[in-house]
């Protein structure tokens, strides 16, 4: 049975990968932000801005399995480049990369419980507790 479960997940994953589903940037539904420009998203995820457009603190969260696709869609760069970017900044002690979440569930959990959280999930996995502020098409 668990074997079948895994197969299903794998198939689903493969399916989504193949389907190239859109990535939805999501935040806590209560933080009052309806919309986010791609530029704002970029500035926040690349460490330039620490606040959301409404002045509230921003807490960007990377979803590790979706990270490569996300950054590709956001800044058209692969992970190695993104890592090298952060490596420089870490070295100078100026800022740090977004918090890392290993699963969509963790992301959902964080977003639901933290009004500052800003992250992304597969568009298919969006739940009503989160608000989609930006959809990145691949």
């Amino acid at each position: 049975m668990p074997r079948i479960h895994y197969l299903v997940i794998t198939a689903l994953l493969l399916h989504t990968g193949l389907a190239q589903a859109d990535i939805a940037m999501v935040t806590n539904a209560d933080n009052g932000i309806d919309q986010l420009s791609q530029s704002d998203a970029l500035n926040i995820f690349m460490g330039r801005y620490r606040k959301l457009p409404n002045g509230a603190l921003a807490l960007p969260i990377d979803l590790v399995p979706l990270k490569a696709r996300f950054y590709h869609a956001l800044v058209n760069k692969d992970l190695a480049e993104i890592n090298s970017y952060w490596a420089r900044l870490v070295f100078s002690g100026q800022g740090s990369p977004p918090q890392q979440a290993d699963s969509a569930a963790e992301v959902i959990n964080l977003v639901v419980h933290n009004p500052s959280a800003l992250s992304y999930v597969d568009a298919a996995r969006v739940t009503p507790e989160m608000r989609v502020v930006l959809v990145l098409h691949e």
């Binding site: 420089r88 100078s92 100026q94 800022g95």
Partner: peptide
């Protein structure tokens, strides 16, 4: 590096 320093407005990196 300069681009990053400018992007972040990072004086320390710019100084480097």
């Amino acid at each position: 590096t300069t681009q990053i320093a400018c992007f972040l407005g990072d004086r320390q990196l710019a100084g480097e």
